[in-house]
Design a protein around this nucleic acid. Sequence first.
DNA 1: TTGATATATTCGCATATAGGTATGTATTAT
DNA 2: ATAATACATACCTATATGCGAATATATCAA
Lengths: 112, 112
Amino acid sequence: MARAATTADAFNAVAEPRRRQILDVLVEGERSVTDLVEVLPVSQPQVSKHLKVLKEVGLVRSRSVGRQRLYRLNAIALRPIHEWVKEYERHWSERLDRLDGYLDELQRKDQG
Amino acid sequence: MARAATTADAFNAVAEPRRRQILDVLVEGERSVTDLVEVLPVSQPQVSKHLKVLKEVGLVRSRSVGRQRLYRLNAIALRPIHEWVKEYERHWSERLDRLDGYLDELQRKDQG
DNA sequence: TTGATATATTCGCATATAGGTATGTATTAT
DNA sequence: ATAATACATACCTATATGCGAATATATCAA
């Protein structure tokens, strides 16, 4: 078996930095493909392909205006990621970090 | 070019559901490889391989105790994901969702 | 030393990727 | 009709993936 498809879910779609970049632009408002090409260091075909992936997982929606296609963010599709990662937030508090440091040190003493 | 390596960053490492499952167990405390194999529907070699990926991106740390290797979460490595996705949270408020619904409807009327 | 337990690594496979380049398809303008 | 603009799709390549199966390595037990 290979890796899960980029279109499998938001986690996979967003793993690609370019696609996060695109979302980072769209969060400011609707943009045409050309707009995105102008702002990002990505070719037009690549932008279109990335948008297709983002659309398949519901992260963006589009509408046609003349010969333009305007894409906009559908942020709620990011919610599963937020919900998942949120549970871990309390674990990077300073207290737990210190415990980790302590365990690392024990390890070093045992084997180093 | 191919897809970015799973070990490229936390985003890519965590895109794989099995690895999220592993973290979901480790969030409750340190576990040996065997512990994880018993709890998850994954073979031992696969668990070891997933742990290797997680370790390479700093999401877990390990220490040896006898012939066991105990893995523990290093949650702070998830912070970049949280920081990124957090910015989008306000965008899935009800008001913006309704605007999206409205735009979708316009689109349907224009072209459907 | 021999065997058992715990974990890691290797090998083979099918698969889908991101990017480049080229081309197709609407839509508008002349 | 023709050309130009805006966008999508097809084709190619290199790459690394996740899984299964087998094997290697380390540690402890008898």
